[in-house]
Each structure stands twice: as structure tokens, then as C-alpha cells.
Amino acid sequence: MTTTDDLIRLCPPPTGVPVVDWPAVEQSLGMPLPADYKQLADAYGPGSFCGFLHLYHPLAPTEWVDLTGPMPATIRRQLQHDHDTGTHAVPYDPRQLFAIGVTDNGEYLFWIQEPEHAPGQWDIAVNEARGPRWYTHKGGIADFLLAVLTGREQVPLFPRDLLDHGISFTASPAARSHPQPHQNQPSGRPVSTDEIRTWARANGYEVNDRGRIPATITDAWKQAHST
């Protein structure tokens, strides 16, 4: 039995999960991926744990939570800027950090890619939303999720009531059938409010699940996607 098997028993995955072409994904990224991540992605598909923790997935419905989308590179550039300017202390070489998830509060999850060519040995790091604090888990993403969802490990950056409403996985409403390279937002394409909310949370904005999205967030989204 693997850690992923233990997680599946604890938190049953949905049915009808889309199939990922892993050789194509790894070729697109230019790197091998940890086996436990691929097992998780195959079992659960795109979605969130406890309505809070979103793992990036190569078939995610929007590019902002897509493992092959623009966010990992964008976040790495932000970390490199923080590291170089001393804005926030970054405890790892930003070149060794690859973003693999985001919380509704804006914390990012990373693989620590050390050793570079041994993905089975990559640990997990969590960065505080809009802040300097970091948390490191010695183990892979499946072990991290199992530790958090069982309460065996409490991440100080996560809300204390994370498990109060039970352990669950919510699948994304739709998924693409194949990984797509990032492109600028085509002009004139209708954009859902869910897509803007996902982008806003991934970029550190606080936004409610329902109701009107503040104009400041909408304007920021438009500026980020202007051609």
C-alpha cells in the first residue's frame, strides 16, 4: 500500500477523472514528475481538498491552476525578485522551487527540486500569502496531504478550522482534454467570474465565492492579461 492509497481511503476521489498523457506533460515541462503526484492527479483529477487547497493539474479548467500553465514560472520570477532585492527572505534557491498548488488564502505550495533529477526525493514548501513565512514538509505531496488531512501535521500558515467541516475533495466543474501551452488571453473571449476569482486568489487577493468582484481585482486581472 502506498501513501496515495492511504489518502484515497481517507478522502475518496470522484468518478470520471480525465486521463492525463504524462509523457506529453513531462515533455512540455522539460522535467520528470514525482510518481506520487501523478498517482494523485490520476486518482482525483483537477479540484480542491476541503474547499481550500488546490493542486495544480495539467487538465485544469483554467490556466491559473494548470501545472503546465503560466503560474509556476510567474511565481518563480516573483520569488527571484524577492530574493535578489531582499524584499522577503526566500529560504531556498528560487530556481529549485516549482509551484504546484495554491490555497484560497493565497499560500503557494512548492516542490523543492533537490536533487534536481530525483523527483521522488523532492520535499514540499509552503509560502505565506503576501508574507515572508515559510513551512517545510519533509516528504512528497501525497505524504503532505495525508499528514494535513489527518491532523497529524498542522501547518501554521493554514486556518485552524481547516478540518472542522470534514475531509473532502471537490472536483473542478470541467477540464481540458489535453495540456495546452500558455497564451495571452484572446481578446473578446467571455471570461467567467470563477476564472477571475481563481486568478485573484492565486495572486494574493481576497475575494468572496459569490457576489460582485471588486473593480480593483477586475482591473488587475485585465492588466495582467492585456496583450
Rank of each mutant, 00 (worst) to 15 (best):
W111N: 00
I141V: 15
R130K: 12
R133T: 10
P58T: 10
Q121H: 12
T218V: 15
V65Y: 02
Y44V: 03
L67F: 05
Y205N: 01
P91H: 10
H178F: 08
Q185Y: 13
V102R: 03
I167V: 15
D164V: 06
L79D: 06
I217D: 07
Q27T: 13
T227A: 10
P72T: 02
T193Q: 14
R95K: 13
P46E: 05
E128Q: 15
L149M: 14
V90H: 03
H88Q: 11
G140M: 05
P18T: 05
T85M: 08
D82C: 06
E128L: 05
R210Q: 15
E114L: 07
R201L: 00
R210L: 10
Q185R: 12
R176L: 09
T3S: 05
T68C: 15
Y135W: 15
S177K: 13
V65K: 00
H54E: 10
R210N: 12
F98E: 08
L157A: 09
T15V: 09
G101T: 00
R160I: 07
T170W: 05
H83D: 14
Q185T: 09
D93K: 01
A89S: 12
S226P: 00
W134S: 03
E116M: 09
R189V: 15
H117T: 10
A171E: 04
R160Q: 12
F98S: 05
V207M: 10
Q121V: 00
P115Y: 02
R189A: 12
V65M: 03
P190T: 12
T74W: 07
P23H: 08
A41I: 06
K138M: 07
G140Y: 05
Q78F: 02
L40E: 05
P190Y: 09
L53M: 13
S226N: 13
R76V: 02
L29H: 07
G45R: 06
R201T: 04
L162F: 08
T62D: 13
N105D: 15
M71L: 11
E153C: 03
L40D: 06
A43Q: 12
T193C: 07
I112K: 08
Q27A: 15
A24F: 05
S177A: 15
D123K: 02
R130F: 05
K138N: 12
P179D: 00
I75T: 11
E128A: 10
R160S: 13
V19K: 14
Q78L: 07
T227Q: 10
Q96V: 01
E206N: 11
Q39H: 10
A35T: 11
P173R: 08
I112Y: 08
R197V: 03
